[in-house]
Computed example of a mutant assay.
Amino acid sequence: MSAPILTEGAALEPVEYDVTRADLVAYAAASGDHNPIHQDEAIALAVGLPGVIAHGMYTMALVGRAVATWTGDAEVVELGCKFTAPVVVPADAAARVRVAGTVKSVADGLATLALEVTSGDAKVLGAPKAVVRA
């Protein structure tokens, strides 16, 4: 599959992902990040968090997945963000992460995607962006 034509100013169809506690357990096993704030409610609360939270890099991986959905097999040249708010994952339900974006610019064979990543009403990533070879 080749990359679609990305036009400056184009809105990218938002993509949503459900995140469960089982996803966090699987990500911990795959990444080696077994920090208990990602699995143990009591510990998360004890350190001042609102509950068990998703790994920041798991949230960022969902952004990468959205970029791949939008751009096909386009080469990702840059993917970055600041971690600004946690994705709180309840024990009995999934947290929903929404990734939306626009094509900010296209120049010199590169498309810069300005993104917005939210969970509930909170922006969970600050200044998220991706650059792909257009």
Score class of each variant (00 low, 15 high):
residue 41 E to W: 03
residue 109 G to S: 11
residue 104 K to A: 15
residue 25 V to N: 06
residue 74 A to K: 01
residue 119 S to C: 07
residue 67 V to Q: 03
residue 58 Y to M: 07
residue 87 V to P: 00
residue 106 V to C: 11
residue 76 V to A: 11
residue 94 A to P: 10
residue 66 A to W: 02
residue 58 Y to K: 02
residue 105 S to K: 09
residue 34 H to S: 12
residue 78 E to M: 11
residue 33 D to E: 14
residue 34 H to L: 13
residue 119 S to Q: 03
residue 56 G to Q: 11
residue 63 V to S: 03
residue 22 A to P: 08
residue 108 D to E: 13
residue 118 T to E: 04
residue 112 T to A: 11
residue 62 L to Y: 04
residue 113 L to T: 09
residue 46 A to S: 15
residue 66 A to K: 02
residue 67 V to Y: 02
residue 92 D to S: 12
residue 114 A to F: 02
residue 97 V to K: 01
residue 103 V to Q: 08
residue 43 I to Q: 08
residue 105 S to H: 05
residue 104 K to E: 15
residue 109 G to F: 05
residue 9 G to V: 10
residue 94 A to N: 09
residue 112 T to I: 08
residue 16 E to L: 09
residue 99 V to L: 10
residue 89 V to R: 02
residue 52 V to N: 01
residue 15 V to C: 09
residue 57 M to V: 12
residue 56 G to P: 09
residue 109 G to Y: 05
residue 55 H to A: 01
residue 11 A to Q: 10
residue 40 D to Q: 14
residue 68 A to L: 06
residue 33 D to S: 12
residue 4 P to T: 11
residue 76 V to P: 07
residue 59 T to S: 03
residue 11 A to D: 12
residue 39 Q to S: 12
residue 6 L to Q: 10
residue 14 P to G: 06
residue 111 A to F: 11
residue 33 D to W: 07
residue 95 A to V: 05
residue 81 C to E: 05
residue 40 D to P: 13
residue 61 A to T: 01
residue 78 E to P: 05
residue 60 M to V: 08
residue 96 R to V: 15
residue 33 D to Y: 09
residue 67 V to P: 02
residue 120 G to I: 13
residue 46 A to D: 15
residue 5 I to S: 15
residue 69 T to N: 07
residue 121 D to R: 13
residue 103 V to H: 08
residue 107 A to K: 14
residue 27 Y to K: 02
residue 51 G to W: 01
residue 33 D to M: 11
residue 89 V to A: 06
residue 78 E to L: 11
residue 66 A to Y: 02
residue 12 L to C: 08
residue 36 P to W: 03
residue 48 G to P: 14
residue 65 R to W: 01
residue 80 G to M: 05
residue 4 P to D: 10
residue 48 G to H: 11
residue 112 T to S: 10
residue 75 E to H: 11
residue 92 D to K: 02
residue 114 A to E: 10
residue 24 L to H: 00
residue 63 V to I: 15
residue 99 V to D: 05
residue 38 H to V: 02
residue 57 M to L: 14
residue 4 P to A: 10
residue 9 G to M: 07
residue 45 L to R: 15
residue 96 R to G: 05
residue 44 A to L: 06
residue 85 A to L: 11
residue 23 D to Q: 06
residue 94 A to G: 12
residue 47 V to P: 10
residue 39 Q to P: 04
residue 43 I to A: 06
residue 12 L to N: 05
residue 91 A to S: 13
residue 87 V to T: 09
residue 115 L to F: 12
residue 28 A to R: 04
residue 108 D to R: 09
residue 67 V to K: 00
residue 58 Y to P: 00
residue 40 D to S: 10
residue 117 V to E: 01
residue 94 A to M: 04
residue 42 A to F: 03
residue 44 A to P: 07
residue 9 G to W: 04
residue 117 V to A: 00
residue 120 G to W: 05
residue 40 D to Y: 06
residue 9 G to A: 09
residue 44 A to I: 07
residue 21 R to V: 06
residue 40 D to I: 14
